[in-house]
Nucleic acid binder design. Sequence first.
DNA 1: ATATCTCCCCGCCAAA
DNA 2: TCTTTGGCGGGGAGAT
Length: 327
Amino acid sequence: MIVLDARRLVIVTFEGAQLLDVVGPLDVFSGANMLAGRGMYDLEVAAIGRSVRASCGLRISTTPLGTVDGPMHTLMVAGGIGEGLTDRPTVRLVREIARLAEVSERITSVCTGALLIAAAGLLDGKRATTHWIAADILQERHPEVQVDAGPIYIHDGDTWTSAGVTAGIDLALALVAFDHGEGLANDVARMLVLPGRRNGNQAQYAPQLAVGARDNSPLAGLVTWIAEHPTDDLTVAALADRAGYSERHLARVFKAEFAVTVAEHVQSVRLDVARRLLETTSLDLDGVARQCGFRHRETLHRHFERRLGTTPANYRRTFGHGSTGGD
DNA sequence: ATATCTCCCCGCCAAA
DNA sequence: TCTTTGGCGGGGAGAT
C-alpha cells in the first residue's frame, strides 16, 4: 500500500451550531480512516472555547481556536440554522477563520457555515451554495459571491460549499472521492448505509419531501396512488380523471400545494423506482425502464443523466449489490 | 443527431 | 362581488 501523509482537517463550530453539520462529515472522514485501515485524515474540532453546546442540546468538547495553528490541509466551517443564521457572525470567530484560511490549502463550509467564510472574505468572486433558507441572506450580505441555492454542494477551485445539514455528508464524501478516489467514497457511503451518494448538482429538496406535508389534502390520496402505481398511465389527463378534477385544475392545485408540476413529480417517483431496481435487481435496462413506467430505455437514460448526473448502468455499477462481478 | 409529433403548463377568460 | 373551476390556445419541453 502506498504511504501518504494524513491530511489534517479542522472543523470549526460554535455555540448553538447544528451538530449534524459537524458529526456528519466527521463520521465520513473517520469512516474513510477506518476503511482505509490507516489515517487518511487527521481530525480536529475547534471552537472559540473548550466546548460548545449544539442547538440540539448536546455539548461537545472542542480545541480552542486560539491554540490551533497551521499548516492544515482542509478547513471546514460548520453552520447552524438557529443562531448561526440569524446573528451576525461574531467578529472573533470570523477573524480566527480568516487566520486559519491563510494556512489551509482548502476551505469548505457546511450549511450556513458559508455565511462565516463569506464574512471572512473567502468566497469573494466564487460560486457557492448554502442552506436554501440562508441563500438570500448570503447574497444580500455578500453581493460579490455568486450564490446558487440549487446544488447540494459546489466546488470552485479550492473552495467547497454545501447546502444544509445532511448535504455536509455528501460534501465530505465528495472530498474523500476527490482526495482518495470514488472507490473509497462509495465504500464509506455503503458503510454508513446511505441510500446512495448524491451528485453535487442534485437539487436541495426533492418533490418527495414536499409531498406528504399535508395529509388532509385531497391530493394526498392521488400522490400515494402515484407512488404505488408507477407503471400505470400517469398522464395529467388520466390523473385528473382519477382525482375528479379537470386537467387545468389539477395542474393548478398540484403546483400550488407541492411547488412541483404533476409531470415533474411523476418523473421523480419513477426515477426513485428505477434507482431501487438498479440497486437491488439485475433486471436489464429495458426491463427496469418498463417496470418504472418509462416506455423506453432511452427515456430512463435521459432522466437519469439529467437528475442524477450519471447513467443507469453507471449507477448500478456503483450501488448495485452485485457490483463485484463483471457486467 | 435531427425531425416530427405529443404532452405539458399556464395565462386568460368565462361559468358556476 | 369574490372564489373556485373548467376550457382554450400557444409556446415550449419532452418523447419517439
